[in-house]
Design a protein around this nucleic acid. Structure first.
Lengths: 230, 230
DNA sequence: CTTTTTTGTGTAATTTTTACGCAATATTAA
DNA sequence: TTAATATTGCGTAAAAATTACACAAAAAAG
């Protein structure tokens, strides 16, 4: 018996936090989707998300969802838009505060259930439940804008990475191609990359230099306000 | 007797839409504030805003508030962040979807009551009710970012304006100074300005050229994706 | 064993940005 | 009334950034 114990003078919408979880496999951007097990939209894919508890913030809620779905606890989670269409959920009026999270694929342990949660390459994403198609579009746009101001890409790459991997990431997010040498020069000139380990003597031409994100240099740059132009 | 007629199985937060209303008087950015007449924070200044009705979107709610406070009905209103701190309102759990609006000061008829609503220059804004100080900081930041991608400034200026007025607006929002001649060149090269009227023959050097925003040129540019660098 | 791909390092040409100069004439101050 | 100051339009030379490529070594692929 569902008792209706929480009563208000005026109608209140329900509030949820949804989380678009982005990963990167070295070549393309992936998104983690959940197959819905219950109505509405049973059997359709959707973003992880759920009702915000009365004593948690939206970000805490999104992080909780993220932890439940991927086991990750310290990823970047950021709110990007709140969707308020009146009929976006057939059950009741639901306002959702949409977030995106950037996670390293390698650190994601299988998830709860491979049947239920699955990574999709951008090009293979099916039509989604609720207004999640629209949410995805906005999340991707947001990612594009954000990567020009903050090196969020480092959240998506492993600790140590090659310049080519970094370039692939930028190309995947921005959906453009860069000249390899120009990209290389621009990134190095920014000064936020450090060589992960001294290049071995015997390193051949084909062995790529490994880089690591230089957090302190980045913090310095960010304060001055920088912008990546592409 | 306040009857509690709206009941739910789980607690629901209240949802409000607040609206940071920006205006520009030719020299500096102004913000419209309301003096609160009731508790909590009675007597403190705050942004216009109110509870979202169950059959309106957040943006509709913000536009309704804007119309009530300024009489304007077709201004740009855009959501920029949702504030969800658990104790941001002492009465009950309230989530607010914050918007900003850009209005032409000249078109704002006095408002309801000069005693209650008042324009404040940025430097004279008092400490605000609730978490509105934080909301203002984020709104100003958002404005700074937005003006580099979209000529939102035109919403703040009169139909017809001089290059100096436009420069003042950019300087006020971005809090920097530009070289007058470089600003002039950069703006003209963008091609989104049209001379409002052919310069009269007898126009003296000191009579500034009047410009008007060229909407079609702008739409074209926007599609290609442009960015104002400053 | 030949061909293709990948990586590091440049560099010259072009474009963009920056920092000013100058003349004409309103406006303000004396 | 007159002198000083401020505002506007139009340039331009120097500096900086971006773009478009070249080349060689060696691993990987066929």
């Amino acid at each position: 018996m569902s008792e209706l114990n929480y009563c208000y003078k005026y109608p209140h919408p329900a509030v949820t936090a949804d989380c678009v979880i982005f990963g990167f496999d070295g070549v393309s951007i992936k998104v983690l989707l959940i197959k819905r097990g219950i109505e509405p939209y049973k059997g359709k894919w959707a973003f992880p998300g759920g009702f915000m508890k009365i004593d948690e913030t939206a970000e805490e809620c999104a992080k909780r969802e993220l932890a439940e779905e991927t086991g990750l606890t310290n990823a970047i989670v950021e709110q990007f838009y709140t969707f308020t269409d009146v009929n976006r959920d057939p059950r009741e009026r639901v306002v959702t505060i949409a977030h995106y999270a950037l996670v390293r694929l390698a650190e994601v342990k299988g998830g709860d259930d491979a049947e239920v949660a699955q990574w999709f390459a951008q090009s293979q994403i099916p039509s989604l439940a609720f207004d999640h198609d629209r949410i995805l579009r906005m999340a991707l746009n947001c990612l594009k804008e954000r990567i020009c101001f903050e090196p969020i890409g480092f959240e998506l790459l492993p600790e140590v990475f090659t310049m080519t991997e970094l370039q692939n990431l930028y190309e995947a997010i921005l959906e453009v191609k860069f000249d390899r040498r120009n990209f290389y020069n621009k990134m190095l000139k920014l000064g936020i990359l450090t060589e992960a380990e001294p290049r071995p003597e015997n390193a051949s031409r084909r062995t790529p230099t490994k880089y690591r994100f230089n957090a302190s240099k980045y913090a310095e740059l960010k304060q001055k306000g920088f912008r990546l132009e592409f």
